[in-house]
């Protein structure tokens, strides 16, 4: 399946894009998506271990399932306020 990954802050700067597209085999987990990003986007790879993933606007774990049409975002720990 094709997924669009939204990027924020340092991840957006590293990629030079607000979002990237990846293709992963189904069924997929967050860990599968991260492995694919790591392989296909070398500029993002160093930042992935410390990054957070949200699926459908909820914080996800490596084991969280990702399905077609899910909203997936990748970002660093937050620093608002």
């Amino acid at each position: 399946m094709n997924l669009t990954i939204q990027l924020f802050a340092t991840l957006k700067d590293r990629a030079g894009e607000r979002h990237i597209d990846v293709t992963v085999a189904e069924p997929a987990t967050v860990a599968d998506v991260l492995n694919t990003i790591s392989a296909e986007y070398p500029a993002l790879a160093p930042a992935l271990p410390s990054s957070l993933v949200a699926v459908n606007r909820q914080f996800a774990e490596p084991t969280t399932r990702v399905d077609v049409g899910d909203e997936v975002a990748l970002f660093p720990p937050v620093s608002g306020g």
């Binding site: 924020f8 957070l52 909820q58 937050v78």
Partner: peptide, 23 residues
């Protein structure tokens, strides 16, 4: 999910929080 970048005269830095949210 909000991030701030401190912009100074000679360089700027994205700030990252200490907390790692989980499910």
């Amino acid at each position: 999910p909000v991030w701030k970048k401190e912009v100074g005269a000679d360089h700027s830095v994205w700030i990252e929080g200490d907390y790692r949210p989980t499910s």
